[in-house]
Simulated scan of single mutants.
Amino acid sequence: MDASTPKPVRMPKAILFDLDGTLIDSAPDITAAVNELLAGSNLPPLAVPQVTKMIGGGVRKLVERAFAASGTSLTPAALEQAHRDMRPIYLRHLTGLTRLLPGAREAIAHFHGNRIPMAVATNKPQVAARTILLYFGLLERLGALVGGDAVTNPKPAPDMLFFALEKLGVAPADALMVGDSISDVKSARAAGMPVALIRGGYTETPVEELGADLVCDTLHDLPAALQRLPTAA
């Protein structure tokens, strides 16, 4: 079966969740961090919709996109310095404006209650993701957390998915990736696992066009959608 071909979906033995745009709406906090960084270079602030389009790919890519949107092309050395400057700023803007997306808490509680191992696999830095998940009381229900700096190659590479599944002790074909973007689809396909997408995340392309195996309006709908599937052997 081609890696881009939708796979048969069964009730998973484990679930991996993306974070930004899937479990949380972090765009306002990320925008605040971006604008603090830009202000240090006397650049004007960006609006939340502008920054939302930049999310995905990790903090370095976010910094590069933000300066590009401000009309500034950074040399590799300047980008590295801006990335270093961004680290403490980013960590100051994690929970002030961030909110759980609809159904996130309920879905995590449902799968935890049904003893389905879960992990978060996110390009967000590990310490930032941990802080957010602790703040919302979700970390204790997860079997693993893999951030973008915990692996050499973040999403859309499959590395963090393999790492998370190794921690959970579940094979890729028996698990499900749940995300909101093409990066989640590509990483899942590269890992050889099915993928579900949730509408309302950080993608400009309609989720129906991204080649997912399952699409849900919100995380409220995910448990019922999975309960209608056959059980993994």
Rank of each mutant, 00 (worst) to 15 (best):
T98V: 06
D159F: 03
G137W: 09
N114W: 03
P125H: 09
D184L: 07
R141F: 02
I108K: 06
F136D: 06
G103W: 14
C216R: 11
M118W: 03
K167V: 13
A107F: 13
Y90H: 14
A191Q: 05
E106I: 10
A129V: 05
L134R: 14
L97P: 00
A171N: 10
L145P: 02
A157D: 03
A212P: 11
H112M: 02
T131N: 12
A196I: 13
K124D: 09
K167S: 12
E80Q: 15
V127K: 12
A164W: 04
S187F: 01
R92F: 03
T122W: 05
A173L: 09
G192Q: 07
Y202T: 08
R130E: 15
A129G: 14
H112R: 03
E204V: 12
K124Q: 06
S183N: 14
P154L: 01
T205C: 07
T205D: 11
I89S: 10
K186W: 05
I116K: 12
D159K: 00
D159S: 02
P158V: 04
V127C: 04
M160I: 03
F136W: 04
I108S: 07
R87T: 14
P102T: 09
I198G: 01
A191L: 03
G113N: 10
K167N: 08
I108E: 05
A129M: 12
A157M: 02
F111E: 01
P125M: 08
G169S: 10
I182D: 14
V215Q: 07
A107S: 15
R130F: 09
A175H: 05
D184E: 05
A119F: 02
R115I: 02
G113R: 14
R115Q: 10
M86R: 11
I198L: 13
N153W: 07
L210R: 08
G137A: 08
A150L: 01
Y90N: 10
T75S: 15
A196G: 04
I116T: 14
G147R: 06
A171G: 09
R87L: 12
A144I: 11
D180N: 04
A173D: 09
V215C: 15
D184H: 04
A121W: 00
D149V: 04
L133T: 09
K186I: 02
A190Y: 00
A104Y: 03
E209F: 04
T95A: 12
G113L: 06
A171M: 09
T75Y: 07
A121Y: 07
G147W: 09
L101I: 11
E106S: 13
V127T: 15
R115T: 02
A82F: 03
F111N: 02
G201S: 02
R99G: 05
S187T: 05
V127E: 13
C216M: 15
R99C: 11
T72V: 15
S183E: 07
V207T: 12
R99H: 15
A109C: 00
V178W: 06
S73T: 12
V151F: 04
I89V: 15
L97I: 06
G137F: 11
R87H: 12
A77C: 07
L138R: 01
L197C: 10
G143N: 06
L161W: 01
T152I: 08
L74Y: 01
A175M: 05
I108R: 03
P172Q: 08
E209N: 11
I182A: 14
G137Q: 13
A196V: 13
S73Y: 00
G211Q: 07
A150I: 00
P102D: 11
I116R: 11
P206D: 15
V127S: 15
